[in-house]
């Protein structure tokens, strides 16, 4: 059975993470290869129009097994939360060439907050969370995590 994390705890975790991210002012999380470095929890979308912060449960970063994520998506130009986006997320293990048995569910919580359920990372190794903004604009961002 999936571990149920109290919503208040998740949001508190997210708030702390957001504050820390803003302090460090991570403008772009892409490395020289254009890839998101492993373990980064704040990045800009491919177009640069959105900044995304990620918080995870049950651990601070995704772990092997089932995870729940909180995404905070903000418009870079205004700093406002980006509401009403249609997001899809696909966990993918590029070195192994396979994805996850589960397709995560994304829920819009309003004001740029998105809850992602059922993020299942089945084995150790480098995983990508390939996320597409499908509407009303089209954009893309990818978090990368090394799972032990």
């Amino acid at each position: 059975m999936p571990r149920i994390v109290p919503r208040a705890l998740t949001l508190n975790c997210f708030a702390l993470l957001t504050a820390a991210t803003l302090v460090t002012a991570a403008c772009s999380a892409h490395d020289a290869r254009g890839m998101t470095p492993n373990g980064v929890t704040s990045l800009d979308s491919d177009s640069g129009a959105f900044r995304v912060n990620l918080a995870s449960a049950p651990a601070a970063v995704p772990v092997r097994g089932k995870n729940q994520l909180e995404l905070r998506v903000m418009r870079v130009d205004s700093g406002d939360g980006a509401e009403g986006l249609k997001l899809t997320m696909l966990p993918f293990m590029p070195a192994m060439g396979h994805g996850s048995p589960a397709v995560p569910d994304v829920f819009d919580r309003g004001d740029g907050h998105y809850h992602v359920d059922d993020v299942v990372l089945t084995m150790p190794g480098l995983w990508e969370l390939q996320t597409t903004i499908e509407a009303p604009e089209h954009d893309h961002f990818t978090f990368r995590f090394e799972i032990e």
Partner: peptide, 18 residues
């Protein structure tokens, strides 16, 4: 069974490369 076709959360029933 390819990894994406597994039915268990940790993919224990994935038995093939696909």
């Amino acid at each position: 069974r390819a990894p994406e076709s597994a039915r268990l959360p940790l993919g224990s029933d994935a038995t093939g490369l696909g």
